[in-house]
Design a protein around this nucleic acid. Structure first.
Length: 202
DNA sequence: GAAACGATTTGCT
DNA sequence: GCAAATCGTTTCT
């Protein structure tokens, strides 16, 4: 079943765990690649010191202040890309960072994209990590602002797996996520899933 | 106009 | 296990 705009118009803390098990699919000229999300992180916009939106709206993070359901893609360290799904309510600038997933369709194409950039040994590593997930899906800065609910070749469908297996904990690589990790357990993942990235303290 | 920094990945010791 | 790579955005002078 396809998710509705209303489903992802709630605050990131509600949307993030709901996204676990959902499948994000990207159709391109080369073919489709679909990823079942296994790990995400919530970013609460202007109130969250770890968010790019913390210091207000800028040219880069403008998408996060827009409507829910759009992708916020940005370049990190000049080398990698990371993807967020913008949540609601409008103006809150809350978003969910897609950290890892399992390639469930178009694995061959995902491998081809990966081979051109580096070396990954196992299939579970194809989308294990924010930047790898982006590569596997074939997303780049050109998809910044793309709508996952309409056009853009993107579709988001609800997963068959419930949130029962979901766990939460401190976010990764975010200053401020370590000390208040227990107060802000805004990282969610599917317990026991091999495609969940290894935890590294901030 | 210049400098510092970052929601990571990869490769080498 | 640790450090380098690399560049756009943000912030300070």
């Amino acid at each position: 079943m396809k998710l509705t705009r209303a489903d992802i118009s709630r605050t990131a803390l509600v949307v993030a765990p709901a996204l676990l098990g959902c499948v994000l699919r990207h159709d391109t000229a080369d073919g489709p690649v679909a990823v079942r999300l296994t790990e995400v992180e919530a970013y609460e916009g202007a109130d969250d010191p770890g968010s790019h939106a913390y210091r207000g709206r800028t040219a880069r993070n403008a998408v996060m202040f827009g409507d829910a359901g759009h992708l916020y893609v940005y370049r990190h360290l000049g080398l990698h890309h990371c993807v967020n799904l913008v949540c609601g309510p409008p103006g809150r600038a809350s978003a969910v960072l897609l950290r890892a997933g399992e390639v469930v369709e178009g694995e061959k194409l995902a491998w081809a994209r990966r081979d051109a950039r580096g070396v990954v040994r196992r299939a579970v590593d194809l989308a294990r990590g924010p930047a790898r997930l982006t590569v596997a899906l074939g997303l780049d800065l050109g998809h910044n602002g793309a709508d996952v609910l309409g056009g853009s070749g993107l579709t988001l469908t609800a997963g068959e797996r419930g949130v029962a297996a979901a766990r939460s904990g401190p976010r990764v690589g975010v200053s401020g996520a370590g000390g208040d990790g227990e107060l802000h357990p805004w990282r969610f993942w599917l317990a026991g899933d091999p495609t969940v990235s290894a935890y590294r303290r901030a």
